[in-house]
């Protein structure tokens, strides 16, 4: 009796999972294997693949543009991930306050995360325009006053040279997307605009923190800051962990915004990993190096996630 049910269950289970099992074979395992194979080939899709061994990987060792793309992505991920996490947590704490029309504020903060990234890129490209953009239009008078009224006199008083004082008097707004460093800063900045979903997840997490804990702590005379670090943060740690993992995976794949906004420029200062893969694969039909890079990207993401999971034992608190 028991045996028969199990067999039936086994068949039913596999039948129900069949779409995914077929999908795994067709759209996961086979492509993964092919991509690994191509990474050892010269392949343009227009001619048959030729096995060239480790050549693609060896060439990546000396490919400066690849190093640039890798480095830019590391910088982006290293800054964007922790800062978006901190910012969304702060916003969630703020939006969690019981004030009137909190719902409207939440909606406003959430909305940008729905905007298609191509459109976000265009909006911000326009805002960051060095000459006619809104950001510099606002910055210019502020910097003007700051330079003339505060920085220059201060430097003068501190005995700085004439040249320094003069340059501080003429402090100018950054050219943003025209400047290698500021372009990167701008792209990181845009990631702060789309934190809506992370904020909502944090909000849900905050609402799950038992109120009794806070009340008990307050009775014991614990201040707000103390309660945040000793109750809220530990209780939220699984949610933080989830957002961290999602952040790592997402940030390593950044493509749309820089592709549309800067195309990787100026120079290659905003060339990111996925863009370089795309460029190699579909602008130059160099499928071999593209697949090699994609596999390296996969290994990096797996490594970072594994690292996060390993560290999780130390700081993630499961009730």
């Amino acid at each position: 009796m028991r045996e028969r049910i199990t067999r039936r269950e086994q068949l039913a289970g596999m039948a129900f999972a069949a779409p995914y099992l077929i999908g795994v074979a067709a759209f996961l395992v086979y492509p993964l294997a092919m991509s690994l194979y191509y990474s050892f080939c010269n392949y343009s899709m227009l001619q048959p693949a030729i096995w060239i061994g480790w050549t693609n990987y060896r060439h990546l060792l000396t490919d400066h543009a690849f190093h640039t793309a890798l480095w830019n992505t590391i910088i982006y991920a290293a800054i964007s991930v922790p800062f978006t996490l901190a910012l969304s947590l702060l916003l969630a704490l703020l939006l969690n306050q019981p004030v009137r029309s909190a719902g409207i504020y939440r909606t406003i903060v959430f909305m940008p995360s729905l905007v298609p990234l191509v459109a976000s890129a265009l909006i911000w490209q326009w805002l960051f325009n060095a000459d006619k953009g809104l950001i510099n239009a606002a910055l210019r008078p502020m910097l003007h006053t700051l330079g003339r009224r505060i920085l220059a006199p201060l430097a003068g008083a501190l005995g700085a040279g004439q040249a320094t004082v003069e340059s501080l008097r003429h402090i100018t707004a950054p050219v943003w997307l025209g400047d290698p460093h500021w372009a990167m800063a701008a792209i990181i900045f845009i990631s702060f605009w789309g934190v809506g979903q992370t904020v909502v997840i944090f909000l849900a997490g905050l609402q799950d923190v038992p109120r009794e804990l806070h009340e008990a702590a307050e009775m014991d005379g614990a201040g707000a800051i103390h309660r945040f670090f000793h109750i809220t943060l530990p209780m939220l740690s699984p949610v933080i962990f989830f957002n961290l993992i999602m952040g790592i995976i997402g940030s390593w794949q950044i493509f749309d915004v820089p592709y549309v906004m800067t195309g990787g420029g100026p120079g290659r200062s905003t060339l990111f990993y996925s863009m370089y893969i795309f460029e190699a694969a579909f602008n130059q039909l160099r499928m071999g190096p593209a697949c090699a890079m994609a596999w390296i990207q996969l290994l990096i993401i797996l490594f970072l996630t594994a690292l996060a999971f390993a560290s999780a034992r130390k700081w993630v608190y499961y009730a």
């Binding site: 325009n129 060095a130 000459d131 006619k132 953009g133 100018t172 707004a173 050219v175 997307l177 025209g178 400047d179």
Partner: peptide
Amino acid sequence: YQEVDSFQSG
């Protein structure tokens, strides 16, 4: 170049 870039972006 910063001046030119700013000029050009307009």
